[in-house]
Amino acid sequence: MTHSEANIFSPAERELIRREFGQRFGTFPSLAEGIFLRRWRTGPQAGQAKIPKVVAGLIERGLVALSPEPVSILGTRAFFTPAGVAALRVLLQDRRAMDPARYGHLRRELGLDPIETGHAA
């Protein structure tokens, strides 16, 4: 893996990924759940997704796409595109960027590590 391949995501984008897909309340979020985005409640953008700069950059580069359907009245989700999943796979192989112990669930979801069966053979 070259240095440029490992730096597909900016530091702010890596931090967003760590925060969104880190363990919460004892559970590990799945990539299939996407990135939660709040919605504007009032004003000229009422009902539209609030898109942070970091997510806007991912959308512009084609790594993330907005869901066409709202999750709830509070928000919607952004999902990784096939190009985004490929970039995420490269990122997860960099052990310094994404700790395998903390983000092993993502590594397993992307097929980088074997899935644990939960019992010894």
Rank of each mutant, 00 (worst) to 15 (best):
L74I: 07
K53F: 13
L63T: 08
I73D: 15
F79I: 09
L92S: 01
K53T: 14
V90H: 08
D94A: 08
V71K: 13
R61I: 00
I59P: 07
L63P: 01
Q93S: 12
G57C: 04
G57K: 06
G84P: 08
I59N: 09
R77T: 09
R61A: 08
V85W: 02
L63Q: 11
V54M: 06
A78C: 10
A56C: 06
R89I: 02
I73Q: 14
P82W: 09
P100T: 13
T76D: 11
L63S: 06
P68L: 01
T81I: 00
F80P: 07
L58E: 02
G57S: 09
L74Y: 13
R95Q: 15
A83Y: 01
T81M: 05
V55E: 09
S67E: 12
P100Q: 11
G62N: 06
R77M: 04
A65M: 10
A56G: 12
P100D: 05
P82Y: 07
F79N: 11
L58G: 01
V64K: 10
T76Q: 08
I73K: 14
T81S: 06
V71G: 12
G62K: 01
V55M: 09
P100Y: 07
G84H: 04
V90F: 01
E60L: 09
P68K: 08
D99S: 12
P100I: 05
